[in-house]
């Protein structure tokens, strides 16, 4: 156990030693990988912030439920209980027909029109704020509500919700696509760095193999090098994203505030940052593994 741990510690020390031996080349490689990570990460964070801002700007689609004109106050209370019990209802507001008419009368352009009407033409209504905007849940809710006796009409801001969902999916796909492409870029950058390292370390590899170094002894430092490079690039990308967030955050907050929002721009969370660094480290390790697998035979045959 101690020998294995010692071997890994030595491999890490050798990987760090190689980084320190070529500081400029190492920094450049890390910067290139960090930029590759920064693009999808930045886009993701931007999307996350936009969704967050949209939710705070009070633009959620409400569901409006209109009852039949002949519905009594007691029946309306019973319906309200049922609406409140629905799993997708966050808040249910009752709008009595009298209040609705009074509200209409206040509007200057409608008061004249309503002055000649003897009876109240407006029904009791409910305005429901939602927990989820998933299309399937909204559709199910519409059906459930219409099945309640005395409910005449249910209106929903479907188009808005559909557009938001489509936009979210588009951004999600874009982030995934960019993430995939730039993940491949990370593999290539790390792979190329490791290939160059293997070529410059060829003598040491050959001599070490001749005097009994097992394959793992030779390969481990390259794998750790790749993983460290990836993880450091991930850390740099997270730091850059946070920095950019702070830089533009003030302007964005002011812009959102002008629309009545109380929004504060946020960078990636601690968990998201940790995930980015871990995934970048794994990608670096993978790039190194691919590279050493490709060039190992070439070096072995040169012994």
């Amino acid at each position: 156990m101690n020998a294995t741990l010692n071997a890994h510690m030595q491999a890490i020390a050798r990987a760090v030693g190689r980084m320190r031996a070529q500081p400029l080349a190492t920094c450049l490689s890390i910067a290139v990988i960090a930029i590759a990570i920064l693009l999808p990460l930045g886009l993701y964070v931007l999307f996350d912030n936009v969704v967050n801002a949209a939710s705070q700007l009070n633009t959620e689609p409400n569901v409006n439920v209109y009852l039949e004109l002949a519905t009594s106050d007691q029946e309306a209370k019973d319906i309200e209980k049922k609406l409140r019990a629905h799993s997708n209802s966050a808040q249910v507001t009752f709008v009595p027909r009298e209040a609705a008419l009074a509200d209409m009368r206040k509007r200057a352009n409608l008061s004249d029109l309503l002055a000649d009407i003897d009876t109240n033409p407006l029904p009791h209504a409910f305005s429901i704020k939602l927990r989820s905007f998933e299309m399937s849940i909204l559709e199910a809710m519409r059906k459930d509500t219409l099945s309640i006796p005395k409910v005449e009409t249910v209106t929903m801001d479907f188009e808005w919700a559909k557009q938001l969902t489509r936009f979210a999916r588009f951004i999600e796909h874009l982030v995934m696509l960019l993430g995939g492409l730039l993940g491949a870029a990370v593999l290539f950058v790390v792979g190329n760095t490791i290939r160059l390292q293997m070529l410059t370390q060829k003598d040491e590899i050959v001599v070490a193999r001749l005097i009994g170094a097992p394959r793992r002894f030779v390969l481990r430092p390259f794998l750790y090098f790749g993983a460290l490079q990836g993880a450091l690039a991930g850390l740099l990308a997270v730091a850059a994203t946070l920095g950019i967030g702070l830089w533009v955050g003030g302007e964005v907050n002011a812009f959102v505030a002008s629309y009545g929002g109380n929004f504060f721009t946020q960078g990636p969370s601690f968990q998201q940052s940790l995930s980015v660094i871990t995934v970048a480290g794994i990608m670096g390790w993978l790039g190194a593994l691919i590279s050493v697998s490709m060039y190992w035979r070439q070096i072995e045959t040169s012994r």
Binding site: D203, E204, V206, V207, L210, I211, G212, P214
Partner: peptide, 19 residues
């Protein structure tokens, strides 16, 4: 690998590492 670790090998061209 284990066998070679237990042998002492001296090469004609030394095979030393100049770095």
């Amino acid at each position: 690998s284990v066998l070679r670790q237990n042998l002492g090998l001296v090469f004609q061209d030394h095979k030393l590492l100049f770095d």
